[in-house]
Amino acid sequence: MKMDLEPDTVERDLVALVLTVVELLRELMERQAVRRFESGELTEDQEERVGMTLMLLEDRMTRLRERYGLRPEDLNLDLGPLGPLLPRD
């Protein structure tokens, strides 16, 4: 559909695109961290630091998102036959 080329829409769309990629990385990192947490290979200190970092990162993402009025569903890319970039649930 024809895109609305208002200046603030363009900025918002770009921010959404960037945050989508950041969100993907964040989720991948979290998954990796949880896997290693589960396997018990981290020290307690590492667990604490990794967990805290991820927690802060999630908080930061939420605020960025909200500042631009983006819902979680707005951060996603439909790759057609490959499905969405980020899991939907």
């Binding site: 961290a33 949880v34 947490f37 667990e47 604490e48 967990g51 970092t53 991820l54 927690m55 649930d89």
Partner: peptide
């Protein structure tokens, strides 16, 4: 809110399993 970094990881793990 999660009480610590480890708590956060624990919840994530539980959340993933639930999902």
């Amino acid at each position: 809110a999660p009480r610590s970094g480890r708590d956060y990881l624990r919840r994530r793990r539980a959340g993933n399993a639930a999902r």
